[in-house]
């Protein structure tokens, strides 16, 4: 399974918001099975994909993420019976909204990964990482990231603690 190390000009920052019952456990399985996958995803564990507020994704982009991945249990498998059904509707709307806002929708990934699907997990992470890497930095938002950088002068080493 091992992959050679390839250097790229651009390494994307990717945020992951995942359900703890399925995807996070799937990631655990991938880890304990010593599977290899891209290290670009910073994962946040949440109780359910239904808990993933689109606000999280907006915030992730505002904080400099180049791509965001959302993942949860397959339909019918939700620990809370229906959370992922709500997530599915909400994200359908949210993707369209982000697209209308002018975000390349390829930067936003939604997937169902169960606790047993460690291989699917590594594949999706790798594929999405490559996809975002090909898109390059999220220039639109990156330009807004630090609104006041040009206003600063000197750094005084004052300490207060």
């Amino acid at each position: 399974m091992s992959k050679g190390i390839v250097r790229h000009d651009f390494e994307p920052k990717i945020m992951g918001f995942v359900c703890k019952w399925c995807t996070y456990s799937g990631a655990d399985l991938a880890g304990t099975s010593r599977m290899d996958y891209s290290p670009h995803v910073r994962m946040v564990r949440l109780p359910c994909s239904g808990r993933i507020d689109p606000q999280f994704v907006i915030k992730a982009f505002e904080q400099g993420a180049d791509g965001v991945i959302i993942s949860g249990c397959h339909p019918g498998d939700c620990h809370y019976n229906e959370g992922n059904y709500y997530a599915r509707r909400r994200n359908l709307a949210f993707r369209n909204l982000m697209e209308f806002n002018g975000i390349d929708i390829k930067r936003l990934e939604f997937s169902w990964i169960s606790a047993a699907e460690a291989i699917k997990f590594t594949q999706i992470i790798d594929k999405f990482t490559n996809q975002v890497r090909d898109l390059g930095p999220n220039e639109g938002y990156r330009a807004l990231l630090d609104p006041y950088a040009s206003r600063l002068v000197k750094s005084s080493e004052e300490s207060a603690a």
Binding site: Y148, R151, L152, V153, K154, S155, S156, E157, E158, S159, A160, A161
Partner: peptide, 18 residues
Amino acid sequence: PLFAYENRGKKVVLTEVS
């Protein structure tokens, strides 16, 4: 902005605006 701050361990570094 009034100033920027950065927390470096126990130290807070302030940067003034022009």
